[in-house]
Simulated scan of single mutants.
Amino acid sequence: MKIALFPGSFDPVTKAHVDIVKRSVNLFDKFYIGVGVNSSKQGLLPVSKREEMLRAVFAYDERIHIIAYEGLTVDFCRSINADYMIRGIRTVSDFEYEKAIAQMNHALEPEIESIFIVSKPGYSSISSSIVREIIRYNGDVSQFIPKEAIPFLQ
């Protein structure tokens, strides 16, 4: 069975995240979205709210499982028997950053493969960090996030 994990903070989930999931899910038998607790990021939404938001966004697909985790992502992969880790790439700097993480993850757990999915051009400028900043200043983020996520941001 091919099991994949798409880890991230999803604070909040964006249309770019949704695109990566839609393009990846058919490659696997089971697909997890892991809501990671990142100690270096200041969160906008509590983890439980992010899980709820993701469940609302992906309610249409029973193959997608949403679960929060803390700690090393490779350890979480082992706990759910995932052999693949999906990562979205928007820019060259994303690639450099994700490559370094993938190489470290491979050193920690050689059996887990990182798979990079390149963002569609229309989504390459969308990041949760920028969306959070727009929200903090009461801007309209509806063009950047799925409509199912909007109620979780009000």
Results as ranks from 00 to 15, higher is better:
N105L: 12
N38Q: 08
V37R: 10
P151F: 01
P146F: 03
F152C: 02
K147D: 12
T14C: 11
R87L: 09
L72K: 03
F10E: 02
S114A: 15
Y60H: 13
D29A: 04
V25H: 00
A149P: 03
F116M: 11
C77K: 07
P12T: 15
Q42G: 08
E98Y: 06
S124I: 04
R90L: 04
I145Y: 04
F10W: 02
A149E: 02
D11I: 15
V131C: 05
Q103T: 01
E133S: 11
F10L: 05
G43F: 06
L54S: 03
S79H: 06
M85N: 14
D140Q: 09
I150T: 11
R132G: 13
E133Y: 03
V141L: 01
G71M: 09
V21I: 05
E51I: 00
S124V: 06
K2Y: 03
D29C: 02
D75E: 15
A4D: 12
P7E: 06
V57T: 02
F58K: 07
R90D: 07
K15D: 13
I115R: 14
E70A: 12
L153M: 06
Y32W: 11
Q42C: 04
G88L: 08
P151Q: 04
E62D: 15
A4T: 04
V74T: 12
I66S: 06
D94W: 12
P12A: 11
P7V: 12
F144R: 05
A68Q: 03
S9I: 15
P46C: 03
F28C: 05
Y137I: 15
Q154D: 12
R55T: 00
L44Y: 01
L153H: 00
C77W: 03
I101G: 00
E133N: 09
N105W: 07
K2E: 10
M53V: 06
S9Q: 03
V47S: 07
P121F: 10
R87Q: 13
G71N: 08
G122E: 14
A16T: 06
Q103S: 14
I134E: 00
Q143F: 13
I135P: 01
D75L: 14
A68F: 00
I20N: 08
E133Q: 13
I3G: 02
I67K: 11
F6Y: 15
E96F: 03
G36L: 09
D140C: 07
S124Q: 15
S93I: 04
V118E: 10
N38F: 07
A68S: 14
S48T: 03
F58Y: 09
K99W: 12
K147Q: 11
S125V: 08
